[in-house]
């Protein structure tokens, strides 16, 4: 673009709008490495003491166990979502299944449908299934809530693979399964990767489901851990420590996002173009 039209008021407005975000994230970073005198805004000394929680479980409780739980949670979620979506997405995109139309519309409605409204029903299902208060239950619920989205995204990626390639495979004598595994799956690798990343990040950030569906269990994910640490009514409450914990908790997500920004962009847009 050539001329910059009366740019400064616009940029000013943009800056003012962005200010809260900027301040929050800036101080998130700064405060974890510094101390600030009470009532003051600017830090006055550099310190690493807020990161001691990593090695000293007496400050906020052991952080590594929740971390491990969170990794297990996110990884299983990722595996379930990716494997089911990869197969179901293909089946829905390419195979002449009975009730295909019906299933497709169902998935689409579920995709658009706000699944949190189901939480009460899900809670009762888990109670009946005896999976209440268990990690397995939470993983299953979270995975199922993500599946319509995942299947939908994968279907989009499969739809974009030319039919001719699939026909050529069939023509070359390969069974549909072989065609899927050896020819089509490599074509949707970018989609699989994006979905895997998204599932992992989403699982990593999940707070509500573990909190509601497994409130009194003996496992704790990082989000719950962080919320306990940051409760203003708790005795260990300290802005700087919860920020360190928060940053520690968020770093993997941020790292993944920075590394794969372009891949994730499409999916963060709700997969509407997928």
């Amino acid at each position: 673009m050539t001329r910059n039209f009366a740019a400064w008021p616009i940029i000013l407005l943009l800056t003012v709008l962005s200010l809260p975000l900027f301040i929050m994230y800036l101080f998130l970073l700064v405060d974890t490495f510094s101390n600030t005198a009470p009532g003051s805004l600017l830090p006055n000394e550099f310190t690493l003491e807020h990161w001691r929680f990593l090695i000293d479980p007496t400050i906020t409780g052991d952080v590594w166990k929740p971390t491990l739980t969170t990794v297990i949670f996110s990884a299983s979620l990722m595996i379930i979502v990716v494997s089911v979506s990869a197969t179901a997405g293909y089946a829905l995109s390419r195979l002449a299944l009975p009730f295909r139309r019906f299933v497709l519309s169902g998935i689409m409605v579920m995709h658009a449908f706000p699944s949190v409204t189901l939480i009460i029903g899900v809670f009762l299902v888990l109670q009946f299934a005896g999976l209440y208060n268990s990690l397995t239950g939470v993983i299953l619920v979270k995975a199922s809530l993500m599946l319509p989205f995942g299947i939908w995204i994968m279907k989009g990626f499969y739809d974009a693979v030319p039919w001719e390639i699939e026909m050529a495979g069939v023509q070359d004598g390969a069974s549909r399964f072989t065609v899927w595994r050896r020819i089509i799956l490599p074509q949707v690798k970018p989609g699989l990767l994006s979905l895997a990343l998204f599932a992992f990040i989403d699982g990593w950030s999940e707070y509500m489901l573990p909190r509601i569906l497994a409130p009194s269990s003996d496992f704790e994910v990082l989000s719950m851990y962080l919320n306990t640490v940051s409760d203003p009514n708790s005795s260990t409450y300290n802005f700087n420590i919860f920020k360190s914990v928060g940053l520690f908790y968020t770093l993997p997500v941020l790292a993944l996002f920075v590394l794969f920004q372009n891949r994730l962009m499409n999916i963060f847009g709700g997969g509407t173009k997928g």
């Binding site: 001719e164 390639i165 026909m167 050529a168 023509q171 004598g173 390969a174 069974s175 050896r182 490599p186």
Partner: peptide, 28 residues
Amino acid sequence: SQKRNVGVVFQNYALYPHMNVFENIAFP
């Protein structure tokens, strides 16, 4: 198709993009 032993050349060739030429030809 798999049981017919027919060779097809598609309009857009439909080569498998992730395989090299040798693997493409060897696939059948």
